[in-house]
Amino acid sequence: MNEQQIHSKITSVETDVLKAVKQRTLDKFTDGPSVLRARLFFLILPFFDNKMWSTDIERSAKTVSIVYAALQAHDLVENDVLADKKQQLTVLAGDFYSGIYYKMLAETNNIAMIQRLATAIIKVSEKKASFYSSEIRSMDEIDEAIKQIETELLFSFYNFYGYQEYSHLAVLMLTYNRYTSELDCLQKDGQSLALRKMTQTLRHPLQTERWLLDKLDSLYEEILQTIGTHNFSYELKNFMLHQITPHQHRAEQLTREG
């Protein structure tokens, strides 16, 4: 399977997911479901790597993506603002997507998977809430929480179908993507819950930027090593390497520092 075919497959699954959660009013007034292609890639990775795959497994993979979209919608609900139509419908979008995930798995009698995902939803919600309490203080704790938020749902899928061999690589790459977004946000003077917590801990945005850059560098090295240990096809390895861009942010920092 070449890179183009990998892209096509991801697009096809993405289209199915978007179709499953389509709702006229939600599509019109909210930002729509967030379906990250990087996550979809990891959900379909066993298929790309010629592991056991079926329409039922693919359906499960799609529901995992829907649950991510549900929880992501609720992350977009803002504090300290009046509930306008967009905010109200964003709340309902998350609930609606959760209902769709439940229904899709109930239709194929995959009750065990519904339960696994429910447990993952609990853990992710607990971790997200921890950003609003004093439970996490150190950067290591923040890092652990982010890893869990990014991968818990995916791991419930991997563990259920016996695809744990991809877990380590997935955590590295999905965390890499997350920190890349956080760095982007920081460098554009934006804010996020994670950035606020990091800057609280490190005491200055510049320290947060440095921490993120160092983290991305070390993750990049580890990703390269880990890809090397897998017996992936040449095309699959290439595809993954093209998903990470190691020096862009460092360049941004250097430019600003003159």
Partner: peptide
Amino acid sequence: SVAMYTGDFILGRALE
């Protein structure tokens, strides 16, 4: 945000 996570958590428990 806490209300959103509380609702998600409780729904997760219900389905579990």
